[in-house]
């Protein structure tokens, strides 16, 4: 067993884990943060995307022990005081989800896109930047709309963006 200490959604966590524990397993099984999903075993679908030290990564391809001393944010950690993050609100408003399974990873990726590319995102940029996230339900049409709107929403809530 190896000891791992990290901050998840603002809370400090320390645990002894089998080194082969993936970060996503640690989040889901140890911390019961089941909003982060697993949809493949080849690091492609993006259902497991979380933020590791402020960057979007696939938590199925990171060992929990590699996240030692890191700051992790999951889908459960982005709404504040019961108010949805602008990107969450945009996905709801623009019907950017159906079954909801890929949604946490999509939203975490979308926030990362805005953090890197800014608040004015055109359709082609969004489609290209969603390269690492698969959705089988929506045909992406409304996800693209939601990301564009969420990016605008994040511009209107600069404090929220900084907090993330």
């Amino acid at each position: 067993m190896t000891t791992v200490s990290l901050t998840v959604n603002g809370q400090s966590v320390t645990a002894d884990v089998d080194p082969r524990t993936l970060l996503v397993q640690f989040l889901r099984d140890n911390l019961r943060l089941t909003g982060t999903h697993v949809g493949c075993d080849t690091s492609q679908c993006g259902a497991c995307v979380i933020h590791l030290n402020g960057q979007a990564v696939k938590s199925c391809t990171v060992l929990a022990v590699q996240a030692n001393a890191s700051v992790v944010t999951t889908i459960e950690g982005i709404a504040e005081g019961g108010e949805l993050h602008p990107m969450q609100a945009a996905f709801r408003e623009h019907h950017g989800l159906q079954c909801g399974y890929c949604t946490p990873g999509m939203i975490m990726s979308a926030i990362d896109i805005v953090n890197r590319k800014g608040n004015a995102l055109d359709e082609q940029t969004i489609r290209a930047e969603l390269e690492g996230n698969l959705c089988r339900c929506t045909g992406y049409h409304n996800i693209v709309k939601a990301v564009a709107a969420g990016a605008q929403g994040m511009a209107q809530a600069p404090m929220r963006q900084a907090a993330e």
Partner: peptide, 9 residues
């Protein structure tokens, strides 16, 4: 290379 998440790791 890969996708944005892959490039971050």
């Amino acid at each position: 290379i890969g996708d944005p998440h892959v490039r971050n790791r």
